[in-house]
């Protein structure tokens, strides 16, 4: 048995699909690759495969992680070579490494994610009032409570959860691209609770109210995932061989 952890990027071409679609995409690519996959037990066996954290629709990413189990010894180089041939344009395997089979499942390690949101306008002539955005963000962060609707596991009961504590950092960064507004979001994610960047941006748009320009979109990008290391955040990809 081999457990391989890999690192991948999701580019523009492939960003419009959901987490479940991504899971299916990888599993089908793995089946095509001919690699000796290990399957789960039970009546409907599926490849033992995980992605570290769901990536929302319409979000690109640079530094994502996944893991897969094989029933035989597989060298990471062979894994990369064979899987690469089966992946569509826009999905790039970067590195792979054999990891301890007993280590906790990859998704359970994720505790935060850094996002970068850019404002794009459908027409470049349209001006965006950055100051309005800055003050809207300030108002949003000043709130003690930001309620997000959550439904229970079976979708029957609906409750509201305060997600304000899950917004670790949020700030506009103007110096990189002068003509573009870039918002950085460090958000808690994973099993101990979290908030989706899409929800935070919706709340920000809501704060803007009438000042929200029409014909603009947020272009979201996940820079990296983090794990908790005795209270401080470390990039997940750095510690992938725990």
């Amino acid at each position: 048995m081999t457990r391989i952890c890999f690192n991948y990027a999701r580019k523009e071409q492939i960003k419009y699909i959901s987490h479940l679609d991504m899971m299916r995409l990888f599993q089908r690519a793995l089946r095509r690759s001919g690699l000796p996959l290990a399957y789960s037990e039970g009546f409907s066996p599926h490849p033992r495969f995980n992605l570290a954290a769901p990536l929302p629709v319409d979000v690109t990413a640079d530094d994502e992680l996944g893991e897969v189990f094989f029933k035989e010894e597989i060298a990471p180089e062979e894994f990369i070579l064979k899987l690469k041939k089966q992946l569509p344009e826009g999905l790039e395997i970067k590195r792979a490494q054999a990891v301890d089979k007993q280590a906790p499942a990859l998704p359970s390690l994720v505790s935060a994610a850094l996002y970068q949101a850019r404002l794009v306008t459908v027409s470049p002539q349209l001006e965006v009032n950055i100051e309005a955005y800055r003050s809207a963000l300030e108002r949003l962060l000043d709130k003690e409570e930001i309620l997000a609707p959550r439904s229970s596991r079976k979708g029957k009961r609906k409750t509201n959860v305060n997600v304000r504590p899950y917004i670790n950092e949020a700030y506009f960064n103007g110096d990189e691209h002068e003509d573009q507004v870039v918002l950085k979001l460090l958000l808690q994610t994973g099993s101990r609770g979290g908030v989706s960047p899409v929800f935070v941006l919706e709340q920000l748009d809501f704060e803007l109210g009438e000042k929200r320009p029409s014909h603009v979109n947020w272009n979201l990008h996940r820079v990296r995932l983090y794990r908790d290391c005795n209270g401080s955040l470390k990039p997940l990809s750095e510690g992938m061989c725990i």
Partner: peptide, 10 residues
């Protein structure tokens, strides 16, 4: 469901 329009499938 934007993937209805993007193509680029395997």
């Amino acid at each position: 469901k934007p993937a209805r329009y993007t193509g680029n499938e395997w």
